[in-house]
Design a protein around this nucleic acid. Structure first.
Length: 338
DNA sequence: AACAGTATCAACCGCCCAACA
DNA sequence: ATGTTGGGCGGTTGATACTGT
């Protein structure tokens, strides 16, 4: 006797979402927030399974999502995090703002795996694909191999300091707990102590991490983690700010951690808003026309281009009344384009 | 131009687990 | 303690786009 399906699929639509369905879902979530997903399709007037709605929202429609390919730096973070966490895509994603587990998983399977193989690294174990390397005089068979990652730190140019949008340890509750309960040497990326629950798994991770070596992966010492000087975070949407999402948590954490950066500074640099409420009003608007206009901006990847081509307008014209942000992937800094 | 092979990624599937009654 | 439920997760599929012949 198997588990009851999340919904009876009779009469439910499957396959790609239409613009109309997207609008209905976005409208519903923004009006009501994220509640019981099973009830969402009925309440939002969608012939979809609740699970499908949740997936569509979290993977595609959420306003705080970044679109486009992962930057080189994000790729490096994924590789490093994968070495520590394995295929825990959601945990990896929680360390990459605006990226979803699905996106990262796809990117891993289609791009990174190949890259690593090309580099002679096993994407599963993060060990060299070539036969075992004989131990050196510093590496007795009894002692764990010196963390090759740490070695690369010393070889890395000192001038290359990394600017994080936020340090990993602030990204989610779990990571903070991990840091509190155990000691992680960031420099060596070697987990030296693990919680009891994850002891067995941790041993495996530790072994993998000890052996992991990617010269290009930057290693960060705590004092090297710099907060971006300004324009550091994308703004919160009302749905985020009113619910206990991870985004909210991230912002709260950063607010607590960075008392010198107040709401005004954060949001005034984004979308010309002076606070979250103003931002929300600006993005989503109060009337349907503005909502649709803003929806177009939000999902223009999918629909705006065709519409623009048909109407003979350009994206730039349509969106000219919005201030634009330029993000430099290399150093995670944002710059406002007027 | 037509076809085959390959790459990409949105969406789905089914299992797991925490919360709750 | 047990069963049920909802949400989350990782793995997989399938449609589409792209590339090579």
């Amino acid at each position: 006797m198997g588990r009851q399906p999340c919904c009876d699929k009779v009469g439910l639509k499957q396959g790609p979402w239409t613009a109309d369905e997207d609008k209905k879902l976005i409208n519903f979530i923004l009006t009501n927030g994220q509640c019981c997903w099973r009830a969402v399709p009925k309440l939002a007037g969608l012939l979809r399974c609740g699970k499908s709605c949740r997936l569509r929202w979290t993977n595609y429609l959420r306003p705080d999502l970044k679109r486009g390919l992962l930057s080189e730096y994000e790729e490096k973070m994924v590789i490093d995090l994968h070495a520590q966490l394995g295929n825990r895509w959601s945990k990896i994603a929680s360390n990459l703002p605006g990226r979803t587990d699905n996106e990262i998983k796809n990117h891993w399977n289609t791009h990174i795996k190949k890259k690593l193989k090309k580099m002679g690294i096993d994407p599963v174990s993060h060990k060299p694909l070539s036969p075992s390397i004989p131990p050196t005089e510093h590496q007795s068979p009894q002692s764990p191999p010196a963390p090759l990652l740490a070695q690369s730190v010393h070889e890395a140019p000192q001038a290359e300091k990394l600017v994080f949008p936020k340090p990993i340890e602030y990204q989610n509750n779990e990571m903070i707990e991990t840091l509190n309960e155990s000691t992680i040497s960031i420099q060596s990326s070697t987990i030296t102590e693990l919680s009891k629950d994850e002891h067995e798994e941790g041993e495996e991770s530790k072994r993998i991490i000890d052996d992991f070596c990617i010269d290009e992966v930057p290693l960060i010492e705590l004092h090297e983690i710099l907060y971006p000087s300004d324009n550091i975070l994308p703004p919160l949407s009302s749905s985020c700010s009113s619910s206990s999402t991870s985004s909210t948590y991230v912002h709260d954490e950063l607010h607590q951690s960075l008392p010198s950066i107040n709401d005004h500074q954060w949001c005034s640099s984004s979308f010309n808003s002076t606070n979250y409420d103003n931002f929300d009003a600006g993005l989503w608007g109060d009337d349907d026309n503005e909502f649709i206009s803003n929806l177009n901006m939000l999902i223009n990847d999918q629909y705006e281009t065709d519409t623009a081509i048909q109407s003979g307008t350009t994206l730039e014209q349509d969106l000219s009344h919005y201030s634009k942000m330029l993000m430099y992937d290399d150093d995670w800094k944002f710059e406002q384009l007027l």
